[in-house]
Simulated scan of single mutants.
Amino acid sequence: MPETTGTHERATPYRVVRRCGARRFAADTFRRFRYGDGFSHARAVGLLLCLAVVPFFIALTGLAEEAGARGAGRVVAYTALALTPGRSDALVRRLLLGEENGDTGEFALATGLTGAGLAVVAAMAQIERGANRLYGIRRDRPAAHKYGRAVVLTATAGIPAFCGFVMIVAGQAVGDALQRVYGWGVWTERIWTALHLPVALLLTVAAVALLFRHASRRHQPSTVWLLPGVVLATALWLGVTAALAWYVNSGLAFTQIYGPLAAVIAVLLWGNASGVALLFSFACTAQLEACRSGDCRPCEPDCSNGWA
């Protein structure tokens, strides 16, 4: 797909979509996502996200124990328990609030940070691969450049995205845990309640914008042309997160079906849905740029000559 960087025209994303037709644009975006193997790449991203979430929480608990900040460790534990569905409570309680942990803080810190860091770096590299295929780029960057950039994106986009995720999904639980452990005042609690969602959204949008700007192996257009994808990715991620949270907590036999594995299944579903939301938004920006360049084909013609 040709790059449109430096193209000077009065067209806007809205005008391009209107010229192509909103229905056709949506259908072509889905075709691009499908034929770019978006679902497979999304599953890979989702699995890597799941492999990062649990070790990172374990690392936070280990860090609190090593630093002697038992209060901070209990904030993490109470937050995790507040988010744990049904019968998984006992499993998480033994993991995070066990009284006979021994000298496991250093081990938990080292293994948790190592596992989470490697998983996030691999996820960033997988996002590059998925974005490249959706843009029609057949090869990724050379390995050293690819994983070096993935490390940088982990620090600049992955950490803000994780903080935004925790504040959105667990904002109220974090506030309750801090109140329980440290005895927050009323005004501090009100300030946290009022500000944690806007700050979380800001962190999430900034992280997604960095991914859209720097993940794929190409020169991206101006921010105006990336903004629809950034907004769509954020909205879809919020939507799937809210829908999954409602389903898990709605009492529709979720915890009865999965029992102690309910938390694991919930994280797997969330990771897969998050990967689909992100890469589908990449497909949207790719299709938008394709229509801007004048070639709206979302995929190569089928050359099977009638063979199934």
Rank of each mutant, 00 (worst) to 15 (best):
E128I: 07
Q126R: 14
S304P: 07
G36Y: 06
L278R: 01
P298Q: 05
P301F: 13
E128L: 01
Q179M: 11
A235G: 06
R10L: 13
G259D: 14
E300P: 09
E106V: 15
L178A: 08
A69D: 12
A253S: 11
G183Y: 13
A11P: 02
A90V: 11
R10F: 12
R133I: 02
A52Q: 00
A173P: 07
E99W: 14
L91R: 13
R297G: 02
A308D: 13
T255R: 07
T104A: 11
Y35S: 00
C299E: 00
A273R: 05
L227H: 09
D176S: 09
A64K: 05
C296H: 08
G306M: 14
V76K: 04
T193A: 10
G117C: 15
G46C: 08
A308N: 10
A123N: 00
Q172E: 05
E128G: 03
V54K: 00
R19P: 00
G21Y: 14
V208E: 01
A206E: 03
A161F: 01
G86N: 12
A194N: 06
L252P: 05
H8F: 13
Q179N: 15
V264E: 06
W246Q: 08
C291Y: 06
P13T: 08
A253E: 11
L195I: 10
L47C: 12
F39W: 11
A177K: 00
